[in-house]
Computed example of a mutant assay.
Amino acid sequence: MPAVTTDRQALTAEPIEEILSMRWSPRSFDPEAVVTDEQVVSMLEAARWAASASNVQPRRFVVGKRGTDTFARIERHLMGFNRVWAPNASLLVLAIAVTGPEGDEPAGPYRWAEYDAGQSMANLVSQAHALGLHAHPMGGIEVEGLRGEFALPDRFVPVTVTAVGTVASPDLLPERYRERETAERTRLPLDELVLARD
């Protein structure tokens, strides 16, 4: 059986929590692995308790398990190479930013809505890792296609789709993508990211 790479701990410049340094985004998922209902609820509960500006919580989710109609409806709006590997994931989660109010909700527009949705998905991804799963957020999605697919109002903006599942051997990927699956993980150095610090 081909080797499965699960330990790709980041080589950080300073120590950080292990759940953060061990998190990575595989593309090779086990097409037979299943996430339980309990795991799904645990991840969504983590997303629910993410920080939110003024506690407006301008984020919504569409969740589909592999083999369901909802999964297929999300999958058909993935773009490029995402269409090759993501169907093997156990779960697809569409994150939606709510950009303005409805009815008696707090006045909008919610300028921070996409950031708020990102906060919730960061929690979901970390919780997935804590459960022994892996997650891969994708920006390559058809925004208008997903909006139409789920009859979302204009104030609901699809932001990302995140694949969740059990990591598998890179050999499941087309050959030209296998090296990326095991390559050293990198990030820009802090002195390029931090514009000012006193």
Rank of each mutant, 00 (worst) to 15 (best):
A128V: 08
D30V: 07
M121S: 13
V62E: 00
G139M: 12
P101C: 03
S126Q: 15
R147D: 10
S90T: 01
E114N: 00
Q57S: 06
A53K: 04
F61L: 06
P109C: 01
F61R: 04
E105C: 01
R83F: 11
L94C: 07
V63G: 00
F156G: 02
R111S: 00
A151E: 15
L91E: 02
M43L: 08
R66M: 00
T70E: 09
D104I: 03
F150K: 02
V35F: 10
W49V: 10
V63P: 01
A113V: 09
P31A: 06
G67F: 10
Q127D: 07
R155Y: 10
L133M: 10
L124V: 02
A151R: 15
E149F: 08
G132T: 01
A72Q: 14
E75D: 11
N82K: 13
G145Q: 03
A128M: 07
A130Y: 13
H77I: 09
A107Q: 07
F71H: 04
L133G: 13
A86V: 04
P106M: 01
D30G: 05
R27C: 15
E32C: 12
R60M: 12
R155F: 11
A47R: 05
A122S: 06
N123G: 08
G67M: 05
W49D: 06
I74L: 10
Y115G: 06
W24F: 15
L94T: 02
M43H: 03
M138D: 11
P87I: 05
G145A: 01
A130Q: 10
A51D: 10
P58S: 01
H77D: 12
D37R: 03
A107Y: 00
A135I: 01
Q39C: 09
A135T: 02
G103R: 13
G132W: 08
V143G: 11
S90C: 10
A47N: 09
T99K: 14
E38L: 12
F61Y: 11
R155K: 05
V63Y: 00
W112E: 09
Y110S: 09
D104T: 04
R27V: 14
